[in-house]
Amino acid sequence: MRSDLAALAALLSDRIGLAVDEGKHQAIEMRLQPTVAAAGLPNVSELVHRLSKGGDPALLDRTIDAMVTCETLFFRDRKPFEALRATVLPRLREARRAERRIRIWSAACATGQEPYSLAMLIDEQQREFAGWRVEIVASDVSAAAVAAAREGRYSQFEVQRGLPTPLLLRHFQRDGEAWRINDHLRAHVEFRRANLIDEFGRFGRFDIVFCRNVLMYMDVERRRDILQRLSRVLADDGYLALGAAETVVGISDEFEPAPDCAGLFRRKTPASLRMAANS
């Protein structure tokens, strides 16, 4: 085992919760080659040395950008979006009809496809939401991802994955070889840089949280901690969406699968908590 790579793995685990198996340490080195070269450093050991000394936040940012997996697509997995359209949004419109306000958080938004999909979904129901304030907050730990998301510019390949053509025509404009999301949709999403490892209570309370395909890169302790803190920012009757391969089962006592919404989770009610305690 190489101690420099082990130190780097420990640093990544500490800073962003990324769990790297010991067997995959060599892969980190490969993945960081371009970052090492761009920083004018001789090798990964030197990069690790600099990062361990601290004092170079830009270098740490670029290392994080290189290490995270930003793979995403519009309307990924479909199901949670369909559940929102058919069940969750109508239900919240009923439950929030006094304050007429709904807040949604895309907590690992990568290059923006997820929050923009949410914005398109809200746009589709704009008649029902007339007079409402629907806020969409999107955040990610990767500075590069957040910058790209804010920019809202997607390649032909990206817009062909998951995005129905009528929505492409409605919400995007050609921009050279690429496509750019229209301003009104971009203005609907508030982008921020945020690390789920850090405290996020200041973001306020949310009715819907999408935290998809990010916990899967973390170890169980991290997942448990983040899920627990998510339960505190989620409204009692709010909904949490995880990735298709992710679950709360066996990790978190705060959530349970929402019975009528495939792929979504709800906070456990006092009644179901009592039942669990008695059994």
Binding site: Q160, P164, T165, P166, Q173, R174
Partner: peptide, 20 residues
Amino acid sequence: ENDVAQIARAMHAGADEYIM
């Protein structure tokens, strides 16, 4: 082609999806 007008025309003419 990647021309918005052409895509829109084809969708209007009854296509369900477009692929480049």
